[in-house]
């Protein structure tokens, strides 16, 4: 056949690798949406179940896409490509910078909405670079709550007080902590807004065929957090562990593990821990690292990770990312991260 090419080829065409993961979402007829935080950020492709990070894979060959005109035994090239788009499965994330924090202060919710102007829950879901499933999981993790169609995040103290009420109610009514009915619980929680209870259950219980089951390690962690937050000054690690043990509601016994609190505390001095929240940290990486080293001179990657991983938008290996702003020194078998 004769082969032609347009003199001016059309560069609006792109080739995307139909990887098995992507094909699967298509087989399931999932909705696919390209998303990005803003016009200068990475591109993600979100389906109902997966999030793909889109990268460009360049090659050195000439690839021409042609339309084949079988009748006239010719083909005409209309596009020429030096790259393919490569979708790689990553974990999605929700950008909550516009979502207000709701604490129980006596303020009417309608007034709160007027004051803070929260995004609609549907919009938040629509713009998040996360698949539907991932969104739901992370929304629960964040204590996200949908009230009258608005997206808000429940404040820490509110969550803890709801959680305490739920636990004491379960204990008081002798309900099975590993298989209880949410409806029955709801009925016995008189003063608690159902949305709040829903949020707290989404975070601290798993749904099983037999009913809801409390996630004890997670609950343990939250009480640890509460103790950490209650003293802002550094405390001795052993004193902290004792206070943590004492913090649980009566007749509710769970084990504790300081590793579960990584990302919520720093070690300003040896053997001392201090609550440290990532929420107020600067978004600029240089400033962020500066802050972190101000509070703690030397870090393990594991303990630093929760404070910096959100900045690694290019999905670099975290070790390499950290090295852009800090020194990562090998000391024996371990690595420590220090100021540069």
């Amino acid at each position: 056949m004769d082969i032609y090419s347009w003199l001016q080829r059309d560069d609006s065409f792109h080739l995307i690798q139909m990887t098995p993961d992507l094909v699967k979402t298509m087989e399931n007829n999932e909705r696919l949406i390209f998303k990005s935080r803003d016009r200068d950020s990475s591109i993600f492709l979100c389906s109902d179940s997966k999030t793909f990070h889109i990268r460009k894979k360049n090659h050195s060959n000439t690839v021409i896409v042609l339309k084949h005109d079988k009748e006239n035994a010719k083909a005409i090239g209309f596009a020429s490509m030096d790259s393919e788009l490569e979708p790689k499965v990553v974990s999605g994330s929700i950008d909550i910078s516009d979502v207000p924090l709701f604490e129980e202060t006596g303020e009417e919710f309608t007034d709160f909405v007027k004051r803070t102007n929260p995004p609609s829950f549907a919009d938040l879901r629509a713009v998040s670079t996360a698949s539907k499933t991932e969104f739901d999981v992370q929304w629960a993790e964040l204590n996200g709550c949908e009230i009258d169609g608005h997206a808000v995040i429940l404040g820490f103290n509110l969550v803890v007080s709801v959680l305490k009420t739920i636990i004491t109610t379960l204990v008081a009514y002798d309900m099975d902590q590993e298989a209880f009915s949410a409806t029955k619980l709801q009925e016995r929680l008189e003063d608690i807004r159902p949305e709040f209870a829903r949020t707290v259950l989404a975070q601290f219980a798993t749904k099983t065929p037999a009913g809801y089951s409390l996630d004890k390690p997670k609950i343990s962690r939250w009480f640890g957090l509460q103790v950490l937050r209650s003293t802002l000054a550094p405390v001795k690690e052993e004193d902290f562990l004792i206070n943590w043990k004492d913090a649980f509601p009566a007749f509710f016994d769970v084990s504790i593990d300081i590793q579960s609190l990584v990302g919520s505390f720093v070690r300003p001095f040896p053997n001392m821990v201090q609550f440290y929240n990532s929420a107020g940290l600067p978004q600029d990486p240089v400033q962020r690292f500066k802050e972190l080293f101000k509070i703690q001179a030397s870090w393990s990657l594991e303990e630093m990770k929760p404070y910096v991983e959100d900045l690694n938008s290019r999905n670099l290996k975290l070790e390499s990312f950290v090295m852009k702003y800090a020194r990562r020194k090998r000391i024996g078998k371990n690595y420590v991260i220090t100021r540069r």
Binding site: M323, R327, K329, R330, R340
Partner: peptide, 8 residues
């Protein structure tokens, strides 16, 4: 040089 010293 700094990286060489850190990575050893």
């Amino acid at each position: 040089f700094e990286h060489i010293r850190d990575a050893k």
